[in-house]
Design a binder for these strands. Structure first.
Lengths: 124, 124
DNA sequence: TTAGTTTTGATAGTTGACTCTCATATGCTG
DNA sequence: CAGCATATGAGAGTCAACTATCAAAACTAA
């Protein structure tokens, strides 16, 4: 049975407190503030465990590295800034998306991603 | 200035004639029928040139390898079968997608992907 | 055709995202 | 707190998708 360690607690806290999906490296950076010796392998191991337990979700977006977010966040989609590569959340969803499939196709889920520039990069 | 070679002509023809997006390996396989000695590096070089010229478009979908398609194909989105990993085209698009972005964000494009099972895999 | 430039194919190398290994450290249970 | 199970960190290894290298071949303009 898994042990509860400082590293896992910090990694979990970082994900839970973030207001956007994070990459394993983002998480490692942020967690090092509390546990400076933290290795990337430990972050990956923690993420794997959390995803299996169901507390964290993998977010895959074309054109971006894999990100992770806490499952408590509701159904939503993403905005990927082409300049800084940051992923932002979009609130809400468009109706009728699943109806785009032709008959005979069974839709299980969908993903919507907008691409462009975020306010910060537009200002710079 | 770029030369016009047999290899590039074949690669271009393969992409143009396909009714779905292809991976570099798909393209290499198909083109080898005409140019058996074709190397994968040449396919990548041709793809890079075509994308720069604007005649071919890169299609990135999470859960699938990078695919390429001819730009003459109209705006559309994709259905990824989770079983056979084939990418299918969807006709049409949903209105109001770009309006999902909060003010301050500049949207350039969007991508919609449906995930599920295709008719063939459902039948099997 | 010739001369110069570009392209090709085979293969080695690179990159990013993990995953494994193992000695050491930490957490848990009695 | 003793003793065993699990976890950690550092670095090596893996894997897929490219990308660089370079001698030989193909292309183009004159």
């Amino acid at each position: 049975m898994p042990y509860t360690t400082q590293q896992k607690l910090i990694v979990s806290a970082v994900i839970e407190k973030s207001n956007r999906p994070l990459t394993p490296l983002d998480i490692c950076e942020a967690a090092k503030v509390k546990v400076p010796s933290l290795g990337i392998a430990t972050v990956y191991r923690a993420l794997k465990q959390f995803v299996e337990e169901g507390s964290v979700r993998l977010v895959e977006v074309p054109g971006a590295a894999p990100h992770y977010e806490h499952v408590s966040r509701q159904h939503h989609h993403f905005f990927l800034c082409k300049q800084c590569k940051h992923l932002f959340d979009l609130v809400g969803c468009v109706r009728g998306v699943n109806a785009m499939a032709p008959s005979g196709f069974q839709v299980e889920s969908h993903e919507i991603v907008l691409y462009g520039s975020c306010p910060d990069c537009l200002a710079a």
